[in-house]
């Protein structure tokens, strides 16, 4: 069956997360360099480099995005979030020159998602960051579309490896459309076993061999 019955909750992309989306939960687990602007009493055990009872003000440590978002306040200074390198000016210039040469999977893999999330934290650079990720998407779009539409037989793994999560999803969507059409064109209209069933069987065999 080509129509998938399991449709996971899609990621929110942009600034809003989808509460139930697995992708967004993993995205919000990405770590950000932070500086604490207040003392966190009795949480010293979270900071491995010291063995004090409290985490003192001014400590620099990495926090998952969800913590940073939860604690961050515009009016009160609780913590300051640093922009990860890929979104800073140096990299923005590289992306601006030719967005296609960059390995967004290695740099991400949630390049667009995390970039959009960074806009939650006040920074004078925010407009530039927003503009940079939009331009990167536009600049890389043609490649993703062309390869996903031509890739029926050719090997695209090298390209796909360098795509960010969002781009991969688009690439797969493009391929699905093309594959469905080409199957139809070749007249493969017969009923087939469910992919899920086939995958389950493969796993069972693999388990038996262990």
């Amino acid at each position: 069956m080509d129509t998938q019955s399991y449709l996971p909750v899609p990621p929110g992309v942009g600034k809003e997360e989808n509460f139930f989306s697995l992708d967004d939960i993993l995205l919000s687990h990405e770590r950000l360099p932070c500086r604490l602007e207040t003392k966190f009493p009795r949480l010293g055990f979270l900071e491995k480099s010291s063995d004090t009872r409290d985490i003192p003000e001014g400590t620099k440590m990495e926090m998952p995005l969800w913590v940073a978002k939860g604690l961050y306040e515009q009016k009160r200074r609780v913590l300051a979030v640093e922009l990860p390198k890929v979104y800073r000016e140096g990299w923005r210039t590289v992306f601006g020159a030719d967005p296609n040469v960059v390995d967004l999977h290695k740099m991400g893999p949630y390049y667009y998602g995390l970039g959009s999330q960074m806009l939650h934290f006040d920074s004078p650079e925010n407009p530039d960051v927003a503009q940079a990720i939009l331009q990167t998407f536009i600049g890389r779009f043609r490649r993703i579309m062309d390869s996903s539409q031509n890739a029926y037989d050719s090997d695209t793994s090298a390209l796909v490896e360098r795509l960010d999560c969002l781009e991969r999803a688009l690439f797969r969507e493009g391929q699905n459309g093309l594959n469905a059409f080409q199957r139809w064109e070749k007249g493969h209209a017969h009923l087939t076993a469910s992919n899920l069933v086939i995958n389950y069987r493969k796993r069972k065999l693999a388990d038996m061999n262990v």
């Binding site: 019955s5 449709l7 996971p8 909750v9 509460f19 139930f20 899920l196």
Partner: peptide, 17 residues
């Protein structure tokens, strides 16, 4: 999210199996 996603999978099983 864990429980919800599992329900989506379980629902799909009814259609596939």
């Amino acid at each position: 999210a864990y429980l919800y996603d599992r329900l989506l999978r379980i629902r799909a099983l009814r259609w596939e199996y």
